[in-house]
Amino acid sequence: MLSKRIIPCLDVKDGRTVKGVNFVDLRDAGDPVELAAQYAQQGADELVFLDITATHERRKTMIEMVKSVARQLNIPFTIGGGITEIADAEALLNAGADKISINSAAVRNPKLIEELAKAFGVQFVVVAVDTKHVDGKNWVHLNGGRLMTELQTETWIKQAEELGAGEILLTSMDHDGTKAGFDCDLLRKVNDSINIPIIASGGAGSMEHFTEVFQKANVDAALAASVFHYGEILIPDLKQELSRHQIPVRI
């Protein structure tokens, strides 16, 4: 049976992981390679690295980091942030990334999804969508939720699928950071409307939230950052808990 995936997300700046990470046995909490290996050891099914570097050196630094991670890591990983053209994606692929995730670049230029899928296969292309509830509807937002677009979330995701997205990473900006649980209603609705895998993101605060999102929204994967980084939820415990609820996981 296909397992539900648990995906820690790491923010990366200038080739270093940021945000407080307090694993006790890390020699260097800012070393993405060491952190990634630790998560793989714990039983993470996949990792997402989100590059928040804003400098011109971004691409070069990122490629070096991706190579180092790929050398060490024996599970798949996705790279997101700053990918705006085929050449960016190709460099990441050649450095060992399994998938790339595009967000605002896809909204600004939807053809990019099509071009990436054609060049590298749909399995390589994750479309990340940040959504916010405004006046009773779900709208796609950019720039970390600060910029509202005229795209309705459900419509945009359908379009992304048609253009060649292989997977959707849906983050609820209303739930993100609240630790009050995932937006199961929206996730369920979107999940029912598409035929590609969907990763739930935003709102994870407890193990129950993961159980809930798999049971209620039947998503393919759940992503979280701080609950894992701060050791509030340990992946082996989480997998046991999910397994107790008959949710198929890799243990």
């Binding site: 049976m1 296909l2 397992s3 995936r5 099914d45 749909v122 399995q123 292989g166 997977e167 598409i194 035929n195 590609i196 895998p197 393919d220 994967a221 890799r250």
Partner: peptide
């Protein structure tokens, strides 16, 4: 859903390719 993406249990026969792999490993 297509693609089939993720970890799945593999039910292998007694074959040297799977020596020392746990039964139904993913």
């Amino acid at each position: 859903k297509i693609p089939h993406m993720g970890w799945n249990n593999v039910n292998f026969t007694n074959n040297p390719l799977f020596t020392n792999v746990k039964p139904l490993a993913q």
